[in-house]
Amino acid sequence: MSSERFELITLKSGHTSLRLLSNRETFHPVIGPEAEARALHVVQQRIVERSQDYQPFIIWDVGLGAAANAVAAIDALADVRNDVELHSFDHTLAPLRFACDHSEHLVYIQPHRAAIDELMQKGQVKIGRVHWYLHRADFRDSLSRSDLPAPHAIFYDPYSATSNPEMWTLEHFTKLRQALDDTRPCLLTNYTRSTAVRSTWLLAGFYVGIGVGIGEKDQTTIAANELSLLERPLSLDWLKQVAASQNSNPLREAGAIYGPMNAADFERLRQHPQFHMRSLCL
């Protein structure tokens, strides 16, 4: 939206990032754009290694924002031999334009200014073996497109559930899960560690695990369409914590009401393949 306004902010780490003034949300607020994008998405998803097994390797970058996640992937994939399709989704280019206008403060932008300009003008650009596509639209609408290739990796980075609740609902994640190709192993990474979000993803049909810590966060969350892809899947102990939690209610379109999970949802969760054989004693 053209009305969106941003400011530069210096993080505790000393790095510079953006903050949206309307909701006071800071982009990559923990350790800065470059380090967070690499650790949370690129390294954790083993993008370089996994891209060697597929031709092409498909990445969905949900929430292009100021392009830190996309650029981290492009930099990491500079020497790969297989083709990569990087599909970035956002309804606005305002944060990316702001980042480009202030690239003297955002080091990761500087080497890619020309490519980013071409991306914004033409909707696509090629950098090495990476074909970068821009989808300027509501990501929820893109899920129904028949021409969009199913991903091997999803960098999920919209605004938080408080500011952007429609991108965090059970209904939305169910459609996202249905858009995956189960013959194509896929990982999804995100900065949250919320019990409610993890419950939502599980009830949408994902397998869910504990993700890497970043900065002051001791853990994040990673999801997949195959349990074997997760190094630290949520355990039966976590399921027991859900039963006692006051903030485990899955997020729905009717409203993100944080509270305990009802009996019907908990039974669905208990029957999830990730837990079922181990939860019979609960």
Rank of each mutant, 00 (worst) to 15 (best):
H105L: 02
V125D: 11
Q274E: 12
G205Y: 08
N23Q: 03
G259N: 03
F155E: 12
G213K: 02
N164Q: 13
T183Y: 09
E166F: 01
V80T: 15
L143F: 12
M1W: 07
E36I: 02
D182V: 02
A264H: 09
T221L: 02
I257N: 11
L203H: 02
Y159V: 00
L187M: 11
N164I: 00
K240I: 01
A114V: 05
L11Y: 00
F89L: 10
E231S: 13
L239H: 03
T192Y: 11
K240C: 05
A94S: 15
L8F: 05
Y133V: 02
W238G: 12
L106E: 07
G205E: 13
N69L: 06
V130R: 03
S199N: 15
A78Q: 14
L170W: 01
D61I: 12
V197F: 14
A76M: 11
T92P: 06
M261T: 09
H152F: 05
M261G: 01
T162V: 13
R232T: 13
C100A: 07
F27H: 05
E25I: 00
E4W: 06
V208S: 05
P165C: 10
A99H: 10
R81Y: 03
T220P: 10
Y191N: 02
M167Q: 06
E104N: 13
I59N: 08
P185D: 12
W168G: 01
A72V: 09
T92N: 11
H28N: 03
R81W: 01
H276Y: 10
Y54I: 01
D237H: 09
E171V: 05
I47T: 15
K12C: 00
S279Y: 03
A263I: 07
Q271P: 02
F6P: 09
I257D: 08
Y133C: 05
L227G: 07
R198V: 04
D218F: 02
N225W: 08
A264S: 14
A254E: 15
A99M: 09
L180I: 05
E118I: 06
M120K: 08
T220G: 06
H105W: 08
F266T: 02
I47R: 06
T92W: 05
V208G: 04
T220N: 10
H112Q: 13
I127V: 15
